[in-house]
Simulated assay, not measured.
Amino acid sequence: MEVFSMSSRKRETYHVEVKHSLLWEAALGIAAITNERLLDTLDYTESQWEGIKQSLSKEMLAHLEMVQEHNTWKTILLLLHEKDMDSVEEFNDFLINLEEEEFRYMAIPYIGKNHQQDRKLASQGDQQAVARLQEASKDHAFFPRYIAYISQVDVQHLKSHIQEVMTGWYESVIQPEEEKFKGILERDAFSKNKRLEKLEAEDFVEWATSGIRYTPEPSVYKVIMIPHFIYRPWNVEADIEGQKIFYYPVANESIHPNDPYIPDQMLVQKFKALGDENRLRMLKILMDGGRTLKEMTEEIDMGKTTIYHHLKLLKSARLIVAYGPRYHVSPRAWEMLPKELELFLGAEK
């Protein structure tokens, strides 16, 4: 039997807003340099990261160790979403004036609408609420440990740490190339806003993130898109109440605005990932069905660490995806790859 819809209403979706700031660029740089497992997949080379480390003081390096241990980069990003701020000084003033309970509440991540009361109680020191939030986020890589830390840490100590790590990073890494970073982010935000005028919200998010198809959720009314340079080629996702955040990698043309022949960064990433015999072999295996890291190790005579490294590069190129512990080929990536190459080379003109 055929079913006809009597409604003329379109399926509701979210509103998209593109925002940019050097403060977010600074926070993501701090997150990047302290994520050792991801560092070798980023566009910045090993020598560039070493150069940054050598430019930092011993005190700043100690603060980065604290960031790595407690994931306090997450605190910085959450605070930056509380208010639009244009400078480190404005951020520091905002931070200083926060009351202890208010600070803890902002620093505890949003787990979902049903957990907001526990978030409030946890910010007041209720350890049962902390335990419930930890249970609700148990599948997240670091949220349970992070929530416990935020609920117990000396707030003044953490505030001081955040001030110093943000100020130190901005002065050492951002400020020397401030105009360069500012120009890249402004150009990318401008070009994205122009494209946003022509695309539906969901299509825009998929295009800007090079493949993330984010379908509407009942509790999300806005998606905020934030360009970044230093964390390329990765997208970073976050949730705040009523909103989804995507920190997405800037396009190559935003970095090289005067070069009409510059290829799309993700296109380059994909072909780099394909240019290796071992990775091609892994893709061939995954074409036959999903595999865990353990299963892949059993099929290929290669060390587990090496296989994981190759899978990580394939994933960063969006050629494979991970659902839980299993890796799968991304069908949409293979559908789009010939089209992306044709568009770049102008074969369809």
Results as ranks from 00 to 15, higher is better:
residue 4 F to V: 14
residue 10 K to H: 13
residue 12 E to K: 15
residue 13 T to L: 05
residue 13 T to P: 08
residue 19 K to F: 13
residue 24 W to I: 10
residue 34 T to H: 04
residue 38 L to I: 10
residue 44 Y to M: 13
residue 46 E to T: 12
residue 56 L to H: 00
residue 60 M to E: 14
residue 60 M to F: 15
residue 62 A to P: 11
residue 62 A to C: 15
residue 62 A to V: 13
residue 69 E to F: 10
residue 70 H to R: 12
residue 71 N to T: 11
residue 86 D to C: 10
residue 88 V to T: 04
residue 89 E to W: 10
residue 89 E to I: 07
residue 91 F to D: 06
residue 94 F to S: 00
residue 102 E to I: 09
residue 102 E to N: 06
residue 104 R to N: 06
residue 110 Y to G: 02
residue 116 Q to F: 09
residue 122 A to F: 00
residue 129 A to L: 03
residue 131 A to N: 09
residue 132 R to C: 04
residue 134 Q to V: 04
residue 141 A to S: 14
residue 155 V to S: 01
residue 157 H to V: 14
residue 158 L to H: 01
residue 163 Q to H: 12
residue 164 E to L: 10
residue 167 T to Y: 12
residue 172 S to Q: 08
residue 172 S to F: 07
residue 174 I to C: 01
residue 175 Q to R: 12
residue 179 E to M: 09
residue 182 K to G: 07
residue 185 L to P: 04
residue 186 E to W: 08
residue 187 R to I: 07
residue 188 D to R: 03
residue 189 A to C: 02
residue 191 S to M: 14
residue 194 K to V: 09
residue 194 K to W: 09
residue 196 L to E: 03
residue 205 V to R: 02
residue 213 R to S: 15
residue 215 T to I: 13
residue 218 P to K: 09
residue 218 P to A: 07
residue 219 S to D: 15
residue 221 Y to F: 14
residue 225 M to K: 07
residue 225 M to S: 00
residue 231 Y to D: 09
residue 233 P to L: 03
residue 235 N to L: 02
residue 235 N to F: 01
residue 235 N to S: 04
residue 238 A to E: 11
residue 238 A to R: 06
residue 238 A to T: 01
residue 241 E to H: 12
residue 243 Q to S: 10
residue 243 Q to Y: 11
residue 243 Q to D: 09
residue 253 E to A: 13
residue 254 S to Q: 04
residue 255 I to T: 02
residue 259 D to V: 06
residue 262 I to V: 08
residue 267 L to P: 06
residue 268 V to W: 04
residue 269 Q to V: 06
residue 278 N to Q: 15
residue 278 N to T: 14
residue 288 D to Q: 12
residue 292 T to C: 05
residue 294 K to C: 10
residue 295 E to P: 07
residue 296 M to Y: 00
residue 299 E to A: 14
residue 302 M to K: 11
residue 303 G to C: 02
residue 304 K to Q: 12
residue 304 K to T: 10
residue 309 H to T: 11
residue 323 Y to L: 11
residue 323 Y to C: 11
residue 325 P to H: 00
residue 331 P to L: 01
residue 332 R to P: 08
residue 333 A to E: 00
residue 336 M to T: 10
residue 341 L to Y: 03
residue 342 E to M: 14
residue 345 L to E: 01
residue 346 G to I: 00
